[in-house]
C-alpha cells in the first residue's frame, strides 16, 4: 500500500471516531481512543467490523490489545491491509 492509502485509513478513522465520541476534542493521530474519546468497548468493536468491510480485511479484535492511540489503530489496519 502507498502513503496515500495510509492517509486514507487515518482520515477514515478520524472521521468515524469523531462521530462515535461524545467528546469535543480535536482528534489527532496521538489521541487516546479509550481515555480521551470515552468510546466504549462495543462501539470500538463495531468500528473494527466497519473497517474490515471498508478495506475487505480481517482484523482480529485481540490485536487491539496493543492499540491505544488513533495512530496505533491506523498502523494496525495498514499492516493488515498491506499483508492481504
Amino acid at each position: 500500500m502507498s502513503e496515500s492509502n495510509y492517509d486514507e485509513i487515518m482520515k477514515l478513522l478520524c472521521d468515524r471516531l469523531s462521530g462515535l465520541s461524545n467528546s469535543s476534542i480535536q482528534i489527532t493521530p496521538e489521541t487516546n481512543i479509550i481515555s480521551q474519546l470515552s468510546i466504549d468497548s462495543i462501539k470500538l468493536l463495531n468500528l473494527i467490523m466497519e473497517i474490515e468491510d471498508t478495506f475487505d480485511v480481517s482484523i482480529p479484535i485481540n490485536a487491539l490489545t496493543d492499540v491505544q492511540t488513533v495512530r496505533e489503530l491506523a498502523d494496525l489496519v495498514y499492516k493488515i491491509k498491506s499483508a492481504s
Binding site: 468493536l45 473494527i48 467490523m49 474490515e52 480481517s58 482484523i59 482480529p60 479484535i61 485481540n62 490485536a63
Partner: peptide
C-alpha cells in the same frame, strides 16, 4: 476466546 490466544473475528 481471549484466553485461547486465537484470532477473534466478530
Amino acid at each position: 476466546c481471549v484466553l485461547s490466544g486465537a484470532d477473534i473475528i466478530r
